[in-house]
């Protein structure tokens, strides 16, 4: 564990909690892409099956359980409890265009052709594009609530910090996982446009609205 991975995990946890609290307190999921949240729940489910097979550490297990629990709670709020506030008309990204290619790639490019490894690889590839429905929805509605931009900022920051973590681990431990690194770079690049808007607008107290 290093400071970059720890702050990355805490940033990820912050994002997940911010979103869950925003939906729970405002009793509304307006502006939130339910499709992205379903993809994240799928990412955590396929990635953390090792909860059933191996114990790494209390921290590892605790965080995985929290991530899975919060993501399913968020999906439950969006599609069940607060369904009336779900803005389905703007959440129209064709997720099958993500899941099918990612599923195919996971079979072709992986470290080991075993069920757990392929599912882990699928989750890594899927996570790198899972935010696209949310970014697409914001481009369609033309704006995003400020709390939603904070959610996206911490979500994007977490994988950017993981990139630094991988540089750190390569340099000090000689460890590197090319699949996670390439997917992490793609994932972080997808946030660049948002990061620019976040820094130039939201941090100056303006509302995030598109076109910029």
């Amino acid at each position: 564990m290093n400071i970059f991975r720890l702050t990355g995990d805490l940033s990820h946890l912050a994002a997940i909690i911010i979103l869950l609290l925003k939906i729970w307190k405002s009793r509304s999921c307006a502006g939130i892409s339910g499709k992205s949240q379903v993809l994240f729940a799928l990412v955590f489910t396929t990635r953390y099956l090792d909860l059933l097979t191996s114990f790494i550490s209390l921290y590892n297990t605790t965080m995985k359980v929290i991530y899975i629990g919060c993501s399913y709670a968020t999906v439950y709020l969006i599609y069940m409890k607060l369904k009336a506030t779900y803005d389905g008309n703007h959440d129209t990204f064709r997720v099958e265009f993500l899941i099918v290619p990612v599923g195919g790639l996971a079979f072709l490019v992986n470290h080991d052709f075993s069920p757990l490894e392929i599912l882990w690889t699928f989750s890594i590839y899927l996570e790198s594009v899972a935010i696209l429905p949310q970014l697409f929805m914001i481009s369609k509605t033309g704006e995003a609530e400020t709390i939603t931009t904070h959610y996206l900022f911490f979500l994007g920051l977490y994988r950017a910090l993981y990139l630094i973590n991988w540089i750190w681990r390569f340099y000090f431990e000689g460890f590197f996982d090319m699949i996670a690194i390439v997917a992490g770079v793609v994932q972080t690049i997808l946030y660049c446009d948002f990061f620019y808007l976040y820094v130039t607008k939201v941090l100056k107290g303006k509302k995030l609205s598109l076109p910029a």
């Binding site: 995990d9 099956l49 097979t53 191996s54 114990f55 590892n60 995985k64 069920p115 757990l116």
Partner: peptide, 10 residues
């Protein structure tokens, strides 16, 4: 389910 799979990164 092989038990040496556990990934230490989240």
């Amino acid at each position: 389910l092989d038990d040496d799979f556990g990934k230490d990164e989240l």
